[in-house]
Structures are given as structure tokens and as C-alpha cells.
Design a protein around this nucleic acid. Structure first.
Lengths: 139, 139
DNA sequence: CACAAAACCTACAAACTTAGTAGGGTAATA
DNA sequence: TATTACCCTACTAAGTTTGTAGGTTTTGTG
């Protein structure tokens, strides 16, 4: 299941994508529009900024804005950033790889093979869907 | 990520499948063979029994055994039982459906559509793989 | 320049989930 | 009838998620 953090991130990004003409948007505006705690959203937007997805402007008239085009931001990127690994096992993760303690040999582990398939099927969707697929008013 | 509980279940089921000729197998035998805490494994096997996957025999010479053929036990069933929903959103889950609080309308929610695709791609794998695909000595 | 606005940052707290433990109850077998 | 081994409930410890508190820094404006 996706965490609330992840869902909030999608909501915020969607809002920003739909209001790109506005320039910098206040955290508060996103928070109240999407029913998210201001301070919690603050952390999320900061993470998205550090990941190079959002830009920000401080002081009066400041706020957050998209730094990339919506069609360049894949769902996979957001999910990995805020939700963690997409794979079901660490030994199968492309971005968060870790050796499985219980599995003696990945090459011969049947679980490993199947979990690779699950991962690839999932990635086939979320690597090819972007923020632009989430926007409703898609002019 | 799959929980330890789920991984332990797969290990135990694999062991039972590979030792079907033995009849009832002690919890302790599985636990020490697969390096799992006896008591923790006890809970897991009990759940698998209640789900109709395992049978048990009490008293001396007792233990657990598979009640179904390995090729009848899908990975999806085990994962749902011990790990919970396979879907990434409650509003997309086939077995654990719940309305999303934030999503106003499922029919028009773009996230909903994409998450259905993710779910279906995942199920395409785990509904068609069974315990027999995890066994090494597959005579 | 001073003030206010708004992002930035660190640390903490509460709630929930997962992992594992404790200890006795119950049924079957020898 | 004693032993074995599953059955059951409840609890604890650890970790993660979710959210809060409070101050710092930057920037625009009068």
C-alpha cells in the first residue's frame, strides 16, 4: 500500500501541474486545497525539492513550483522517493538493493526469479506513466 | 516489501512441499531448518491452517502437512493472507476494498485507473505462480 | 532599514504495525 | 495416565508512519 506521504505528494504535484501558470504556489494553498496538514506537507515538498523535482522561492510572494515538465516526472520516481522500494524483496530492488539474509544464492532462488517478474510488470506501468497522466484539465 | 511473516510462510510451505512424503512435520523441524523462531512460526502455521492450506495432527507424532497440492496454492493467496492487500490503494483492492477518503470519484480518478493496471500486472504473475514453482527438487 | 511573509531545518511525540515472547490449554498417542 | 505437540490469548519490544513544535533564514515591500 502507498503511504499517505506518497499520496499527498501526488496530490500536491497534481495541483502544481494544474496551476503551472500561477508561478510559485504557497504550501498553505496546496494544503488547504487538498486537505493536508500544512507542516506535514512542508516536509514532503522539501523532499521533492531536494530530489530536483520542485523549485522554491522564499519570502513574500514565494512558494513552490514544478521545475520539470509533468511528462518528465514518472510515477516510479515519486514512489521510490517517498514510498521506498517498488520491489517486494530487497534482493530484487534496482534502487534499494540489499542481499537477502535468508536466501543462499540469488541465481538459483526461485522466489528471486518470480519477484523479478513482479517488479518488472509493476515498473512497466509506473515507469511509463507520468504526472501528465494524472492531470484532469489536460490542455 | 513482503513482511518477514510472509517470507517465513513461503519458507515453511516450501519445506512442507519438499517433504510431503514424510507426513506430519514438527514445527520445530521447520523452524530450525529455516532459521525461524519456533513460537513465531507457530502463529504463522496456525494461520495457514485456518485458511485451509495446512492440516495438523496433535500429540506425539503430530505436526503440520499440506492439505492441497502445491500446484493449487497460488502465491497470491499466501501473500494476501499474511502480507495483506496486493493493490497499492484500498480503492483498487479486490480482496480488501475500501473507499479512498481523499478520492472524490473512482470513475474519473486518474490515479485509480493507473493503480488498477499495477494491480493487474502484479496479479498476472502471482495468481499464476504456485508453491510448485518454488520447489527445487521437482520430481 | 525594519518588518512581515514564507520557505527551511531539526527535533520530538503520538499512533500504528511488525516481530517476537510467555505461558498455559487441549487433544492425541503410546 | 503421562507425554508430546499443536492451540490459543495476551503481552512486550522495536520500528515505522504520521504529524507537531518552534525556531532560522531568505526575500520582497513600505
Amino acid at each position: 500500500m502507498l503511504s499517505k506521504k506518497t499520496k499527498y505528494a501526488f496530490h500536491a504535484l497534481t495541483y502544481l501541474a494544474e496551476n503551472q501558470d500561477k508561478g510559485a504556489v504557497l504550501i498553505q494553498e496546496i494544503a488547504s486545497s487538498k486537505n493536508i496538514s500544512h507542516k506535514f506537507l512542508e516536509n514532503i515538498l522539501l523532499e521533492l525539492k531536494k530530489a530536483g523535482i520542485l523549485g522554491s522561492k522564499k519570502g513574500k510572494g514565494g512558494g513552490y513550483y514544478l521545475i520539470k515538465k509533468p511528462e518528465e516526472i514518472t510515477l516510479a520516481k515519486i514512489i521510490r522517493l517517498l514510498n521506498g522500494p517498488i520491489a517486494w524483496l530487497p534482493c530484487v530492488s534496482l534502487n534499494y538493493y540489499e542481499k537477502c539474509s535468508d536466501c543462499p544464492d540469488e541465481a538459483t532462488c526461485n522466489m528471486h526469479i518470480i519477484m523479478c517478474q513482479v517488479r518488472d510488470q509493476t515498473l512497466a506501468v509506473v515507469e511509463n506513466k507520468t504526472l501528465s497522466d494524472l492531470i484532469t484539465s489536460n490542455n
